[in-house]
């Protein structure tokens, strides 16, 4: 069985008034995620991808269908904390998820809730801060940090709980390019070096490209999934679902449309340049 097993999941938000129907956001969605995977969940705003974030750790409970994490059904309330310590959540706004006014005390918040002995908390906090490269800032006030740094502290706060999986809900949407790079770098390292399962919810294509698997969502359903190459070569499909492809991919796609024989699964500028120069050399 997979680490996370979502089967035939339906979820909707409660109606605000009586004459309004329940707004169903997720329709019969099935998805399995293996331990150690890096999955990007891609979709436009309102596609249901952020709702999924809270379904993975039992913050929301399925209306029908099941979400099973590490063999535990999220609908079982007695397992609530067991599930949450295994699946951490990082939200979009870095300002709104830090609790304490000193970095290391914020990171300690989770382990303190788990009731761990002080020495254990101390060592987890130090390790977590080192893992996101924020150890030097341990006694700073969060509000003086940059967006990228705050987001890394939030990630450290989750790591200190020693989760098997981290779900990140648009963690870079409010950051500048430097902050985005910092956060993406951190995510990649955690996945590669610590083997933490990553579920990255985003609408940035260049971030999704870094994942091992991309799952595209639209109106609460999975439209397509596969490796970034497989998914991004379907330019037509992505555009239909209000998504974007990297400019390099778009260029190749449109060259193909003009009858020039280039591969469709080019994702970055280097590959694109090599491909085009090779094409000319071959012909010459």
């Amino acid at each position: 069985m997979s680490f996370i097993e979502v089967s035939d999941l339906c979820f909707g938000y409660a109606a605000e008034s009586e004459d309004e129907a329940v707004r169903e956001v997720i329709h019969h969605l099935s998805l399995s995620i293996e331990e150690g995977e890096f999955v990007a969940l891609l979709g436009h705003n309102g596609s249901g991808k952020s709702t999924m974030a809270k379904l993975f750790n039992g913050m929301y409970l399925p209306q029908s269908g099941r979400v099973v994490v590490d063999g535990m059904d999220t609908a079982d309330e007695s397992l609530q904390f067991e599930i949450r310590r295994r699946v951490g959540l990082v939200q979009q706004n870095p300002d709104n998820q830090l609790v304490a006014s000193i970095v290391e005390e914020d990171v300690a918040f989770g382990p303190e809730n788990l009731g761990l002995p002080p020495a254990e908390i101390r060592s987890r906090v130090d390790q977590a801060l080192k893992a996101v490269d924020m150890y030097e800032y341990r006694d700073h006030a969060p509000f003086k940090l940059s967006g990228g740094q705050k987001q890394r502290v939030a990630i450290a706060g989750v790591i200190a709980m020693e989760p098997k999986c981290i779900v990140l809900d648009e963690p870079t949407a409010m950051l500048d390019p430097r902050g985005r790079d910092e956060v993406m770098q951190t995510i990649r390292t955690l996945n590669r070096e610590k083997g933490i399962t990553i579920i990255l919810i985003t609408h940035y294509m260049d971030e999704a490209v870094q994942a091992g698997r991309v799952v595209v969502m639209n109106s609460g359903e999975i439209v397509t999934q596969g490796t970034p190459r497989e998914v991004f070569s379907q330019v037509e499909l992505l555009k239909r679902h209000k998504l974007d492809v990297p400019q390099a991919t778009e260029l190749m796609y449109r060259l193909r449309g003009a009858g020039i024989d280039v591969p469709a699964d080019i994702l970055d500028s280097e590959a694109c340049i090599e491909c085009l120069s090779a094409l000319c050399k071959k012909e010459a």
């Binding site: 904390f81 949450r84 939200q91 706004n93 918040f109 809730n113 706060g157």
Partner: peptide
Amino acid sequence: FDLATAMECRCYH
């Protein structure tokens, strides 16, 4: 609202 979610996710009880 965000903070409450974050706290719950970090097992605050």
